[in-house]
């Protein structure tokens, strides 16, 4: 086990950011923390990377206790923080050079490694340019390169693609996949993009308000729901769910006031029936869509809320229209 966490709690004053979480990560595994902003993901990363002390509980990283032996933990981990942590006034090469020296690499090895990691993230030709002139995606790539420079056993990535455009995001995913496949490094990442968790992670913990509410492989998690989901947007806040009584409906939930999510075995067959029913009940339908379950639906199923900024789903479109009004 590369990471073992037991009953970890972090309190800031009266606010409990992490409320007693437990999990473990195997060597070579990519483990994801999926949850909305403020769920306690970054706090957990800060504790695991030794720069924040937990209020109670225990965390073992690379075989060492993060509170009692932070120095040993630090030697075995690489970290990409959510906010940039590069020195803007230095070049990409200099940033890596300083990092290598801080981690005690000797000059010959360091030069080789710098060239290697820079080529890996395709930044070698920009190595002598000031980081100031780098784009957001280039900075993130440089940070990934830097975190890999000292060949860590475990790599921590806090929201690795936050704020990047879709193409760059796919690019970064590719690097992360290659790190896992070619270098066998254990990866712990946090994200609130469910596609990211689905594509990259062997196992995902869904975290909400400081608690892990579900844990398993993406497939296992999706099987919690298992079936198609129909989204119906109705005219006003009528409690549609209580009125709907059609065979084959497994669950019905109201989200965002006027949108309801209905779980069925087969959406294509259920939609006409639901529409007929609503028409009879004189409920005006504004919009209907359906989709196969994703981790986002698992999250909605478990919490009744949506992971914010999840990108491109029906609910987001609804929300955007609300904003436009």
């Amino acid at each position: 086990m590369d990471i073992v966490v037991e009953n970890l709690v972090k309190r800031y004053g009266n606010v409990e950011a992490v409320k007693g979480i437990s999990f473990s990560v195997k060597h070579g595994e990519t483990f994801g923390f999926l949850g909305p902003n403020g769920a306690g993901k970054t706090t957990t990363i800060y504790i695991l990377t030794t720069i924040l002390k937990p209020t109670s509980g225990r965390a073992i990283v690379a075989g060492y206790d993060v509170v009692r032996e932070p120095h040993n933990v630090r030697r075995h981990i690489g970290v990409v923080f959510q906010d940039p942590s590069l020195d803007d006034n230095l070049t990409g090469y200099e940033n890596l050079y300083i990092h290598g020296k801080l981690y005690g690499l000797n000059n010959t090895l360091l030069k080789e490694r710098i060239a290697e990691v820079l080529k890996f993230v395709e930044l070698y030709e920009f190595k002598d340019k000031c980081v100031k002139s780098y784009s957001g995606g280039m900075r993130r790539r440089l940070e990934i390169a830097r975190a890999m420079l000292h060949v860590p056993r475990i790599l921590f990535l806090d929201e690795p693609t936050l704020g990047l455009d879709p193409q760059t995001r796919i690019h970064i995913w590719d690097y992360i996949k290659r790190l896992k496949d070619e270098h066998g490094v254990t990866i712990f990442l946090t994200t609130h993009y469910m596609e990211e968790a689905e594509i990259l992670c062997n196992r995902v913990a869904i975290i909400d308000r400081g608690k892990i509410i579900a844990l398993g492989s993406p497939d296992e998690l999706k099987s919690i729901i298992g079936n198609d989901i129909i989204y119906v947007r109705v005219d006003n806040n009528i409690d549609v769910c209580s009125k709907l009584s059609i065979d084959g409906i497994q669950s019905c939930k109201t989200i965002d006031g006027e949108t309801i999510a209905i779980q069925v075995r087969k959406a294509s067959e259920a939609i006409p029936e639901i529409l007929r029913y609503l028409e009879k009940a004189e409920i005006k339908v504004k919009e209907v869509s359906y989709r196969r379950p994703s981790l986002n639906d698992v999250f909605i199923h478990l919490t009744g809320r949506e992971i914010r900024d999840s990108g491109g789903g029906f609910i987001d479109i609804v929300r955007m229209r609300h904003r436009v009004r």
Binding site: T50, N72, R74, V79, D83, L86, L102, Y103
Partner: peptide, 18 residues
């Protein structure tokens, strides 16, 4: 503010020296 401090804080080296 620009985050470089975190890079120094997670490095396996005594803070007194940095």
């Amino acid at each position: 503010q620009f985050g470089f401090l975190k890079e120094v804080l997670v490095a396996p080296t005594p803070r007194s020296l940095t």
